[in-house]
Every structure is written in C-alpha cells, then in structure tokens.
Write a protein that binds this DNA or RNA. Structure first.
Lengths: 211, 211
DNA sequence: CTATTATCCGAGCAATAACTCGCATTTGAC
DNA sequence: GTCAAATGCGAGTTATTGCTCGGATAATAG
C-alpha cells in the first residue's frame, strides 16, 4: 500500500488520488480531462472505457489511475471544472444586467449555452442532461439554478421561497431542451433555440405577473 | 443452428428471437417484461443485468434468451408496449375533447402521466427521459409528439408545419420535467407538477396567439 | 553528483455480465 | 398412449473492462 499522501497535500476531491505537483503531471491531468470530455460528449459515459480515455490523451492507464481513483472520478472532476466555468460565464455576462428585462437575460443565457457547448462540441449538453446516469451530478445544473433563484428574488419578490426553488428547476429544465430535443426534419438548431426561447419567455413572464 | 423459424411465424420485432406459440411462453414473455420494467425503473438500464431480470421474473436465463436476442431487445419490446399503451390512453381520454381549452387538455395529459407512471412506479418517466442511453428510442416520446402535432393543427392553423413539429417536441420536453426535475426541499411532486403545468400553459397560449 | 521524491509505463489480473449449449420436461395433435 | 414440436433449464464459455503492480525514467533538493 503506497502511503496515502507521502509528503504532499491531501486529495481535494474524494475521487482524486494524488495531487499533481509538477507541471508535467498537471498537464497530464488536463489532457485526460480534455480527452474524457470529448469522448463522453461523442459516445456517452457508458460507451467510454478508461483505456480509451488514456489512449486519446496520449497517456498510459497507469498514469491515469495515479491521479484518478476510478472512472467516476474523471466525470466528477469534469463536472467540477464545468460548474466553475459555467458559473463564471454567467456571473461575468449578467453582472451589470441587474435590472434587465427577462427577454434580454434569456438571450444572454442562450448565447452562453451556445458558446460553451462549442469548445468540446456537445459536452455542456452532456453534462447538463445526462445528470442521472452514473453518479448523481448536482454540480453543473446547480451552477445555473442557484443563480436563477437569486434572479427570481428580484423578479418576483412576493413569491414564496420554496416556489422559487421549484420554478428555477423548471427553468433550467426547459433550457435543457436545447440539448434534449431531437433534431430532425424541421427541427434545426436555430428552430429549437427559437422555440425554447419562446417557452422560457412566456413562463418567466408568468412568474413575474403571478403574485 | 436451430432453423430460423421452424414452422412458425417470423419474428416481428428485430430483436425478437422466436414468437411464443403457447400460452405458457406468452406468460413467460410477459413476466420478463414486467420484471425488466420494474428493474429499469428502479436502477436504470446500465445497472440491470439479464441474470437479474430472469431471476426476478422467475425464469432461467436460457428461457429469456429464447425469446429475446439480447438485452437491448428487452428494452425495445418495453418501449413498443408502452408506446401503444400511452397512445391508447391519450386517444381515449382526448377523443371527445376536440375543441377543449388548452388548460383542460393539459390537465388531462398530466393526469394520464401521473396514472401511468404508477403501475410500475417510475417506468414511464424512465422510458420518456432516458431515451438516449442504450438504443435510440423514438418510440414513447413519439407517441405523444405525433398527437400533439395534430392538436397544434387545430390550435394554431396558421403556423408553418415545420414549426409545429419543433413546438410539439418542446412541449413534450417540458412535460418530461415531471420526471427530470429533481425532488428536494420545496420541490415536491405536487409543486413540480404545478410549475410544469404553468410552463406548459403559458407556452401553449403563446403558440395560439402567435400567427 | 547523489538521493529522494514524483512521474510514467503497459502487460496482466480479476470481476462482471452477456450469451450459448446440450439435455430434460411439457404440450398438443393423432 | 406416442411422437414431434415447443418450451424450459442453468452451469459454463467468452469477451470486455476497470484497475493493479513492479519497475523504469525524470525532476528537484542538498
């Protein structure tokens, strides 16, 4: 048994086996997360095995398991990374829009979705909608939800707090329609976005008008 | 190699290996589907193995594989069964409501959801939302979607057909919020249903008012 | 330079789960 | 009854895959 943490810091994430200390290994971890993100988005979590992740990252399995306790830990790390990334994007672009109209806010948020879902194409959608599959993943969804609750406090101050929680969850779910609605004849990306936008707008207006 | 289809009918479903001819085997197939439905709803597709399905059905694995080509075929058969079941329920309860108000229709549909999702608790939700996991499953969602398109022809006759398709997909997606929205503090079943209802109602009204 | 720690490797171990096969039993036609 | 087809069985085969291990290589301190 290799002493839990020889001389270094303790693992921050439960599934993290060892903290990278040299630049070399930090880049290795980054390569693994990049490869895993691409593969999960392309094939889905179940269809990706750790050997494949290591191969695409240009790394041996052994090295992979030196920094990640198991397969789930890779997904968890990705979720943490994207929770931060998405939260930062939202905070930056919505900071000054404190009293913006719903339509304006919705467009901003849809823009952020579109932009972030490009870097590794489909990864944001995967993280937002496949939440239930492997480990319970509150992370990425919660990044949006918690900020929505704050907005609702401004938009609908008379609403009971509990209902705000539920309403925020529903808004997030409707937004996920961006990824969950199947593309087919007549349902192009722009068509889906337009309809999701309408759905969000009408629902949010309802919330403002309600008590 | 056991002759493809000795003297009987050909398999109807691709994954179906052999058509049950005696009552005995028809009941066996039924028991397998029941057990599989319960298990999928409880644990999810990936966490269920065929040995477990056979065990809960009180059947040997060998018998199971005599009627289903592989694990996916069981899920496919379930999807077909529920596509019919859900379609029938919708047709029956909405037949006479040809010119009903949106609010009325929505309540009817939400009732159907609640009722059908009880028999094996959670199975309808599983079939509607886990669509992308194992095999592409257009079935159950399409049962609702196609009927919605027809309704939209009545509700919004001026709307371009392509947009109707997309709008119907979005409506189905919002309804799936019944299953996808996490339950937690403040988000009880009834709270979620109330918010989903509001979202549906406001969106559908938008569609009617729009061109 | 030397010692010590950190990093890296990839063949192989072990567990899991999908699926097969040969044979026993039941059903239904005659 | 008798026979053939249909059904039922479950131990065992096979392939996949998550993960370990022992040892080689590179960085860093003194």
């Amino acid at each position: 048994m290799p002493v839990p943490e020889p001389g270094g810091a303790a693992a921050p994430t439960p599934g993290r086996r060892r903290m990278p200390k040299q630049r070399r290994s930090r880049e290795l971890v980054e390569r693994i997360l990049t490869a895993a993100g691409e593969l999960f988005a392309e094939r889905g979590y179940a269809e990706v095995n750790t050997n494949l992740v290591a191969a695409r990252a240009g790394v041996s399995v052994g090295s992979l398991y030196q920094f990640f306790a198991d397969k789930d830990a890779i997904l968890t790390a990705l979720q943490e990374q994207w929770t931060i990334r998405l939260g930062a994007a939202l905070d930056e672009r919505l900071r000054d829009a404190l009293d913006a109209e719903p339509a304006e806010l919705i467009d901003e948020v849809l823009d952020i979705h579109a932009a972030l879902n490009e870097d590794p194409p489909g990864l944001l959608g995967f993280l937002l909608s496949s939440s239930t599959s492997p480990p319970a993943a509150p992370g990425v969804v919660e990044a949006i939800r918690s900020r929505l609750v704050q907005r609702l406090e401004v938009l609908a101050p008379a609403m009971p707090p509990e209902r705000r929680e539920t309403a925020a969850s529903v808004i997030v779910h409707i937004s996920n329609g961006l990824y969950a609605v199947g593309r087919s004849a007549g349902a192009t990306d722009t068509a889906v976005r337009a309809e999701v936008r309408r759905a969000l707008l009408s629902y949010v207006r309802t919330l403002r008008d309600d008590t």
